[in-house]
């Protein structure tokens, strides 16, 4: 009886539910509200601000632990951007750094039990990816004019096959925001569901008496291992998102293939 009740309670998707915390009223038939997703976005932005302000507050010539963490994150992104997009790319440093820190902190905050994972919703990641996508298009056209369209015309291709290649390049270009956003979203969603399901086994098994408790050791070890893996994935996906942003910005700066 207790087992079935517990099994009913284990709902791996429930953690992604968006609830309205404060409702402001209606606009165009939909409710404008401050949701738990928005709350955790605010929390992650506040913790980034607090981390950077507090850690750089002392401004020691010899950095302390926190200050060297802040400096490391700066140099990490600056180096990545300079490698991928050259020195001119540094004008996009605020964008790339903000994206990296926001995604990293959202991912890591999502690892805290009972916290909401902002980046596990495709809506959020899609907006971030589209932000990069439109930045690339608008800045590319602003800087290079029609020369930006050279992005779709690779050099050294015979004329008779060029229309086909151009079409393929255009499709490839438009597939970017999709893969950019889906990758982050899918990684976070899948990771959190896996973690929840495996952890749910512990609860379900431990209600089966002694054998169940012994059997629950394996999923428990798995949960520990998966938590470590998920923290790695949280870093990795923030990194991948940032490096791809750098590569796409490089296309806006140097559109020739």
């Amino acid at each position: 009886m207790a087992a079935s009740a517990d099994a009913d309670k284990v709902d791996p998707i429930h953690q992604f539910a968006v609830n309205n915390l404060v409702e402001f009223g209606e606009f165009g038939g939909s409710t404008i509200a401050f949701t738990n997703s928005a709350l955790f976005m605010v929390i992650s932005v506040l913790s980034i601000t607090a981390f950077l302000l507090l850690s750089t507050g002392s401004r020691g010539l010899v950095p302390g632990r926190m200050q060297s963490m802040a400096e490391m994150s700066y140099e990490f992104i600056a180096g990545m951007l300079r490698d991928a997009a050259g020195a001119e790319g540094m004008r996009f440093f605020p964008l790339v750094f903000s994206l990296f820190m926001f995604i990293l902190f959202s991912n890591l905050l999502g690892m805290v039990p009972y916290f909401f994972t902002v980046t596990s919703h495709i809506f959020i990641t899609a907006v971030l990816a589209l932000l990069v996508f439109f930045t690339v298009i608008i800045y590319g056209i602003y800087k290079n004019g029609l020369g930006f369209l050279k992005l779709f015309v690779p050099g050294g291709v015979p004329g008779y096959i060029l229309p086909l290649i151009t079409l393929i390049e255009v499709i490839s270009f438009f597939s970017r925001p999709l893969s950019h956003s889906v990758r982050l979203f899918a990684n976070m969603l899948a990771g959190h569901i896996t973690l929840k399901v495996i952890a749910g086994f512990i609860v379900s098994l431990s209600t089966l008496g002694f054998v169940g408790i012994v059997g629950a050791i394996l999923p428990f070890l798995l949960t520990v291992a998966l938590t470590a893996l998920e923290i790695l994935v949280a870093f990795l996906q923030a990194y991948v998102f940032a490096i791809l942003t750098c590569l796409y910005l490089n296309d806006a700066l140097h559109p020739s293939h």
Binding site: I171, S172, F174, S175, R176, L178, S179, V182, R183, A186, N187, V240
Partner: peptide
């Protein structure tokens, strides 16, 4: 993950 999603995304967009 990157290679897989790049491929699938292009097919979907097409």
């Amino acid at each position: 993950m990157r290679l897989g999603s790049e491929f699938v995304a292009a097919v979907l967009v097409g």
